[in-house]
Amino acid sequence: MGTAVKKTLLHSPIKALVVNGGHTVKVDAYWKGSTAVVKLVGEFDLSAADDFNKTVRAFRQDSRLRQVIVDLQGVSFIDSSGLGALLGRFRELQQEDIELVIAAPSHWAGEILGLAGIDRFINIYPSVEDVPEPEDGEG
């Protein structure tokens, strides 16, 4: 390996590779018709719950919202704080007849969701594309 490459690696911040500098999740969200797709990448724990909650609540302000898909494909870790945030937002949205569903959990995340019994409340789909459009959706 050339010294230039070595030097670049040595002088790059490594914290993002370790624990993402404390903030363990990245939230990306976009509209798909009347559906908000909230894509999480990283570790869904207590430090990530706030970002997730804020994102969902921002979409909730918009009257066209009929459905929220939480895309867990990029989530490598989830604990009871992540599950609590999912169920909390599910219940909140349910009061307004807005559906929250989960898409693409990893094998491990799927086991945790099952163990917690989340699948009794929230529908889980293998991918975002597999989620049916909301019943009275116009988009």
């Binding site: 719950a49 909650n53 009871s80 609590g84 909390g88 163990l115």
Partner: peptide, 14 residues
């Protein structure tokens, strides 16, 4: 707390 599931100790036990 309302936003929690009370599953922390259950997971620790499981």
């Amino acid at each position: 707390r309302k936003d929690r599931m009370g599953l922390g100790f259950s997971f620790m036990e499981s």
